[in-house]
């Protein structure tokens, strides 16, 4: 982990939160807003330490609330709780496997909005929780399941592009010449 990797992660988060506010196409077609932050939480939790995961989830929650009608700070706890559980169990998870990434993203996509709705129910303004909400949660789970492996691929690509790559050294020297025959 180096600084550039962390900066890239926050830049992607910044863009992701912004883009979520711009694309209404999915909402028009199937009634579900775009939300991919749980998938990014999985990436942060599986590739970084507890301190960075915590910072990432807190910043993500605050940024999301700042562009939403939700009360400021509501989204922090669900995102953090999910990232915390994944991070503390990361040694048990097959983090390199695509199917593991898919299911982790899907779980986040389902439970993070559900817990957020639960917290919102405690407030003065009750959120719109209807039968259609279960459909929205399922689509969000699927969306995050798909985005999670893509996020791993994206960050790998970004790291390869922007990071210094160590040159692999072989035991065999390329300039070594083997001369056969007798001298």
């Amino acid at each position: 982990m180096n600084r550039l990797q962390i900066i890239l992660m926050f830049v992607v988060l910044w863009l992701a939160v912004f883009l979520q506010t711009q694309f209404g196409v999915l909402h028009r077609l199937i009634g579900v807003p775009v939300c991919v932050l749980p998938a990014l939480m999985v990436y942060a939790a599986l590739t970084h330490g507890l301190a960075m995961t915590t910072l990432f989830s807190v910043v993500a929650g605050l940024w999301l609330d700042s562009v939403s009608a939700s009360r400021f700070g509501v989204s922090v706890l669900p995102l953090f709780a999910f990232a915390f559980v994944v991070q503390t169990r990361s040694h048990l998870l097959l983090r390199e496997q695509r199917f593991a990434q898919f299911w982790l993203g899907a779980a986040g996509g389902f439970f993070v909005p559900l817990v957020t709705a639960g917290i919102l129910q405690l407030g003065q303004r009750e959120p719109a929780f209807t039968q259609g909400t279960w459909w929205q949660l399922l689509v969000l789970a699927l969306m995050n399941g798909i985005v999670c492996p893509l996020a791993f691929g994206l960050f790998d690509q970004l790291n390869q592009t922007f990071n210094y790559q160590a040159i692999e050294t072989h035991s065999f020297r390329l300039d070594r010449q083997i001369v056969r025959g007798r001298n």
Partner: peptide, 29 residues
């Protein structure tokens, strides 16, 4: 504990202060 305290503090802020913090945070976009 740190995140719990932070969240409780944010959720118990007076609405006017919470709104200002929200705007300040949203300014990044």
């Amino acid at each position: 504990v740190t995140v719990g305290v932070l969240v409780l503090t944010l959720l118990n802020l007076p609405p006017s202060v919470a709104a200002r913090l929200k705007l300040a945070c949203g300014a990044i976009f």
